[in-house]
């Protein structure tokens, strides 16, 4: 099961070794040329001699995580986040730590021991630590060194009605869409890129775009979704189950109008539900790609993801399927000359 394999793999920003290898095993029989670049992005070139616009499809493979920065005398680990994590969600979550992926739990002073005033305050990073069960610093040092990484220890499970929960749907769901798309044949030169370090500042995508110099770029993302109780329509961003969301404006990009409208039209024509992403907060790799060199026509297609950047994220499997369908339909339309750069 692709989504399970991808979401359960380990790969905080800048330290994507495990997830990169997992993806490589999935894609190695499909690309004409498969390689990594200086930052570690995994690039798969297909059909490069075909006519038609050169297309870059990108999804980032890194996830938000944690770095161990110090070990206390009693064997508890101090950590800092890699990427944007709300410290309020951390307390009492299990994590996997270090090269051996051992279990740890994020602990803090028990609520019973806190003053009434303290209980009203969110816990700050300085009050939290990871407990791996070590009795002492010396014991902890046998397993962990400062600079080691941790991620949430969340299992992929399908729940409710056609929903799934896991860590790191942002953006392993995009990686999964790319891998499924790669298995289809298109008469187009397509480069699939699994980029690094999106979560720490859109770092990996720019060098990939510079290398590939595509005519068109499409990023597949997991994006913010808050269609829950008491949220007004303009605070939701996207609706779960209403289909892939097309970006209009975010913190780093004003979408290329003709390209985003084309994608919506393709969806409508093919009977695939499509929605517009209704917030300007957040950003994705398009922010780096569309400003590369002389500018690149780009768009983002996203799977609405509730509780993004949290330990248990939720997507709709229908949205996932529809994103796979939409991406294929968009590529077919370009294949047939329906949109040119």
């Amino acid at each position: 099961m692709l989504l399970r394999k991808l979401t359960e793999a380990f790969g905080p920003s800048g330290f994507e070794d495990e997830i990169r290898q997992v993806i490589y095993e999935e894609v190695k029989s499909y690309g004409d040329k498969i390689y990594t670049d200086a930052l570690g992005s995994l690039i798969v070139e297909t059909n490069m001699t075909a006519r038609g616009p050169k297309i870059l499809l990108a999804a980032h493979m890194d996830e938000v995580g944690f770095m161990i920065v110090d070990i206390e005398d009693h064997g508890l680990l101090r950590f800092r986040p890699l990427g944007g994590v709300d410290p309020r969600i951390l307390v009492s979550k299990p994590v996997l730590v270090g090269k051996d992926r051992i279990f740890g739990v994020i602990g803090s002073k028990a609520v019973h021991l806190q003053e009434p005033k303290e209980r009203e305050q969110p816990l700050e990073l300085q009050q939290l630590y990871i407990d791996i069960g070590a009795h002492s610093r010396e014991e902890a040092e046998k397993y962990i060194a400062p600079g080691d990484l941790a991620v949430f220890a969340t299992k992929y499970e399908e729940i409710g009605e056609r929903r799934a929960k896991a860590k790191s749907f942002d953006d392993r769901v995009g990686c999964a869409v790319l891998i499924e798309t790669m298995r289809k044949k298109f008469d187009l030169p397509i480069v699939y890129a699994f980029t690094v370090q999106e979560e720490t500042g859109l770092r990996g995508a720019g060098p990939v775009a510079y290398r590939i110099k595509p005519n068109l770029a499409l990023v597949v993302e997991g994006t913010v979704c808050f269609d829950v109780v008491e949220t007004p329509s303009h605070g939701q961003s996207t609706l779960q189950g209403a289909g892939p969301a097309i970006s209009v404006v975010d913190a780093k990009t004003i979408a290329h109008r003709a390209f985003r409208e084309h994608i919506v039209q393709v969806g409508t024509k093919e009977g695939i539900p499509v929605q517009l992403r209704r917030t300007i907060g957040g950003a994705n790799d398009v922010g780096a790609i569309h400003l590369t060199e002389m500018g690149i026509i780009s768009a983002a297609i996203s799977i609405p993801t509730r509780y993004i950047h949290a330990p248990s994220q939720m997507i709709s499997l229908d949205d996932y399927d529809n994103t796979v369908r939409l991406l294929e339909a968009v590529l077919r339309s370009i294949e047939q000359g329906g949109f040119s750069a």
Partner: peptide
Amino acid sequence: QGPTWTDADPMQIVQLGI
């Protein structure tokens, strides 16, 4: 865990990446 706030930051992503 992210920016180093030094010349290393921009150099890493120049052109093809360094």
